[in-house]
Write a protein that binds this DNA or RNA. Structure first.
Lengths: 350, 350
DNA sequence: ATTAGCACTCCAAATGAATGAGTGCTAACA
DNA sequence: TGTTAGCACTCATTCATTTGGAGTGCTAAT
């Protein structure tokens, strides 16, 4: 903490701030000019040399300016940024229209964020494995199939057409619906264990095999795309020359296109967030829980709808991204999401 | 047609074939060596000069080899390719698992095709506006909402939580379900016109306003994401140096990420396909019905499930893509899709 | 403690020569 | 008449060289 005196902090701040804008190594003369410290370039040079020894900056080669290291960025995010720039950026209210399908809401949302930050953005819909079953319904579709609809808390709806092996008249269907609802309502997927399953099958009597099919389908349906990921703004990385050469860009976009990889990433971020008890997190370079983000930073906001139902918004960009802007945006979004989606749960009678 | 004698055609074929592989302008000496025409480079030079005059090839600068023009490609696709290479490439049976949700099937499919062709691929789920309503169901969710489920032909399911303004007991719900199903089953969205709507509202009696909400929602639900587009393999363009500089790549990926643009494109392709009565289409460069594909070719297969229900698979790549491989792949996919999805409709009793 | 001054380093952009692939043309040949 | 060998010419690419400038580190003066 005392490692850096005020002047060094000021200089480090100026270096990073300037570098964030330009992406070019910044030299002593520049700092001397842009700050109002009234120090000559020579003095700055001495200080910067110290900062380099302490590991906050490096110069890419002998006669270049200095570039922040991960440690430098970390210090900036943790200390400098918070202290200096507490000017509250205007909070834009995002239109969260809950009457739309969830899917569509998230599509709009992710594209809004990508646009606001001008960075590649991903967002995970709330993981529904921890979400509770609100309502289950089987209905007649045609002779060979029944339609299974499962409504989860937060009005997430999943449906599937299930082929039926045996005949099933209306009354039987009614009974099955009753059976399923009385046993499963209010439970999370994790709570639907083998014991319960066999109990339901017993109770189903002659319909034991159709119930089995239905239960399998429920498990499938709920878990199959647990962690649905939406992305947008991938091409924003081309705004940063340091990431746009074709090798790097291709590698990055490959990752960004692979929803499964992103889901893994988000999973780890959520675990992390739980551990640290923070909603907003910044991963600089190697800090990110993923292999291929060496040259990038990741900023995430994990929103929490209670009952362990969580989702994450993530932004990936160059290390020299505008952390402040990104962080205010995300934290803003996070609280709005929590408010809106929680409010929609207040409606429910359960 | 007589414009090109056999020898010229052979040479043009060799030029294009070679260029498809290398992406480099190809010179007379190369052609002289790789063909078994036993012609000296000088002769080839003369012929190539003629081909250039006729507009089938150009040389990018004075001392470079020749590169096919759009006209050259067109001739290749229409004439040369068909004649020469009718070796049937092995037809791989793609796993089309219809028990999965449609959504997931298409996701798998598009990624399969992208992988098989090593090109950016998009696919549109069958447009459901022309699809028929099979089954409608309202059910109780909680005090303030009802759940609306619409099953279309081909077992495409759409659902939505509809806020209800007035109380609605079980019996009323039953009556509404009857009413909606008797009036709407078997109709396409286009056939649900204003006259019909007011007729239903009349018949609904006291529930006229909830019926209105429901009907609006149906219209919305069906049309909102008409033409859902799935994409995959976007980063494959980086395999082609001529498209991987950051300006071009960025522009391309921007387009490819924008699902609305792609939907427009697919729409026009489908119209086109109808006009020409072909399922498989090749657009070379400017031929494509879109602004930003100047440097690319687009190959599409429009599958037709009957009753005007159509969808399109599209592949976008450099002009020098492997047309044969791509076209056999698509035509293969097309027929399998048609078979599988049609088969699933045979199940239905309507 | 700060600063001016200077030598030194190294990148980046500019210049220019060498290389080589390819063409067009002409003249010779079958 | 069609084909080919030969030659002069063009132009992109590559590589080494030069040059300019930005920046540093060090030293000596304030």
């Amino acid at each position: 903490m005392d490692e850096l005196n005020e002047r060094k902090q000021n200089i480090l701040y100026a270096v990073i701030k300037y570098y964030l804008e330009t992406g070019e190594p910044v030299g002593s003369r520049t700092i001397s000019k842009i700050t109002d410290l009234n120090l000559s370039s020579a003095t700055i040079r001495n200080e910067m040399s110290d900062l380099e020894d302490l590991g906050y900056v490096v110069s890419p080669h002998t006669s270049a300016g200095r570039v922040p290291t991960d440690k430098g960025y970390r210090f900036y995010v943790d200390k400098l940024m918070a202290e200096k720039d507490k000017e509250v950026s205007e909070v834009k209210e995002v239109m969260l229209n809950q009457t739309e399908r969830v899917e569509k809401v998230f599509k709009q949302l992710v594209s809004y964020v990508a646009n606001a930050t001008q960075l590649p953005t991903m967002i995970s819909a709330p993981s529904i494995t921890k979400n509770r079953v609100k309502f289950i319904q089987l209905s007649y579709v045609d002779d060979k199939n029944v339609l299974l609809v499962v409504v989860m808390e937060g009005n997430v709806v999943r449906n599937r057409v299930v082929p039926k092996s045996s005949a099933l008249d209306n009354e039987a269907m009614l009974r099955l619906n009753m059976l399923l609802n009385t046993h499963l309502n209010g439970l999370t997927l994790q709570e639907i264990n083998l014991g319960l399953v066999s109990k339901i099958k017993d109770a189903a009597g002659e319909f034991t095999n159709i119930v089995e099919e239905v239960l399998n389908t429920i498990a499938d349906t709920i878990s199959e795309d647990d962690l649905e990921i939406y992305t947008s703004g991938a091409t924003n990385i081309f705004k940063y020359p340091e990431l746009s050469d074709s090798r790097r860009a291709s590698a990055f976009l490959d990752n960004f296109e692979d929803k499964e990889d992103l889901a893994d990433l988000i999973n780890e971020v959520q675990i992390d967030s739980e551990k640290r008890g923070t909603g907003l997190q910044v991963y600089i370079g190697d800090e990110a829980p993923s292999k291929n983000l060496k040259d990038c930073s990741l900023v995430t906001a994990t929103y929490d709808l209670g009952n362990g139902v969580k989702g994450t918004i993530g932004i990936i960009g160059p290390k020299r991204m505008d952390y402040e802007n990104v962080m205010t945006n995300l934290s803003n979004l996070k609280s709005q999401l929590e408010n809106t989606l929680k409010r929609s749960d207040d409606n429910e009678p359960i």
